[in-house]
């Protein structure tokens, strides 16, 4: 049984359809990243799974339970980290974590957890005086103190410094190793490439892509070849040799509008070799996740809507 199973989820605010027949699956011991532009329906989807929102339609199961009907039972097994806030401003990490621990039947040891998220030096500093990164790490610890089986993290590294981000990412990776199902919403695509086992891109309330990060970046395979070379090379001549359009998209950055077949790549490198032009880098068949994201969620990009 998947940890989370969503079929045809629809969420409405009055006449506005925020989530439109969305399907989703997340497994135990896996990190699912939910991507999408602001207003795409990510938060509405996650808040429905957390039990905060009522759905207008569809089937939703978290650990086999209905988040709306079985909310009380799920609170013992699900950890939630909000995008911001959520802690008493006058409360320090140790006090907050001890309080949260009292809510759960078998909590983790607060002191150990504070060490794990790197807050041992500020255990008594009130929340309002913690840095943004420290607040996020406390918020993460609060989501974990009850030994959850499913964890929802809403932009856990937003506004966090590099070191804090590292800590948060390593804790998230540990959760996966312990068999926890992690649902991550984020805007940090680099984080997704590093952490996520599965990526779901949402736009206008619908899923526009779903797969592993590797699948998503190779799905655009065959569309083009990109390479770096000195600025201002003879693109017309190269295009004639390759029999395909060549554009200098940025100075020194070129795109060939042809499938990345071995023959084309060989012809390209041969043409450069004849002119003794250095090849800075060559990407054939792979996009960066950022390119995939921008292509799929571009305004008016409804033509990609069917891609699953």
């Amino acid at each position: 049984m998947p940890a989370i199973e969503v079929e045809g989820l629809t969420v409405r605010y009055g006449d506005l359809v925020a989530v439109d027949r969305l399907d989703l699956r997340a497994e135990a011991g896996r990190i699912l990243a939910l991507l999408g532009p602001n207003g795409a329906g990510k938060t509405s989807t996650v808040e429905t799974l957390e039990g905060y929102r009522r759905r207008a339609g569809g089937k939703v199961a978290v650990l086999g339970l209905d988040p709306a009907r079985d909310h009380a039972a799920l609170t013992r097994r699900v950890g939630v980290m909000l995008q911001r806030g959520g802690v008493y401003p006058g409360m320090g990490p140790a006090e907050a974590l001890s309080l949260w621990a009292a809510f759960y039947p078998r909590p983790l040891d607060p002191a150990g957890l504070l060490e794990r998220v790197g807050l041992s030096a500020v255990t008594r500093t009130p929340w309002r005086r913690l840095s943004g990164g420290e607040q996020q790490r406390l918020s993460l610890a609060l989501a974990l103190v009850g030994r959850p089986e499913v964890v929802f993290l809403d932009e856990p590294t937003a506004g966090v410094d590099v070191k804090g981000r590292q800590v948060i990412r390593s804790v998230i990776a540990e959760l996966r190793d312990e068999g926890v199902c992690v649902v991550l919403t984020t805007h940090q695509l680099e984080e997704v490439e590093r952490l996520a086992d599965r990526v779901v891109i949402v736009d206008r309330g619908r899923v526009v892509a779903d797969g592993t990060p590797a699948e998503l970046v190779t799905r655009g395979a065959g569309r083009s070849i990109r390479f770096g070379a000195p600025a201002g090379i003879d693109v017309a001549g190269l295009a004639a040799r390759l029999g395909a359009p060549v554009n200098e998209v940025d100075p020194g950055e070129y795109e060939v509008g042809a499938a990345a077949s071995p023959a084309t790549v060989a012809a390209l490198t041969a043409w450069l070799a004849e002119r003794d032009l250095p090849l800075a880098d060559l990407r054939a068949g792979r996009e960066r996740l950022e390119d995939v994201f921008l292509r799929l969620t571009a305004t008016g990009g409804a033509g990609d809507g069917g891609q699953r």
Partner: peptide, 16 residues
């Protein structure tokens, strides 16, 4: 507490 989302967050715990 409501403005700082403390109440919202407590709503996701078993406190009730």
């Amino acid at each position: 507490e409501r403005q700082y989302l403390v109440l919202k967050r407590l709503g996701s715990t078993p406190l009730g």
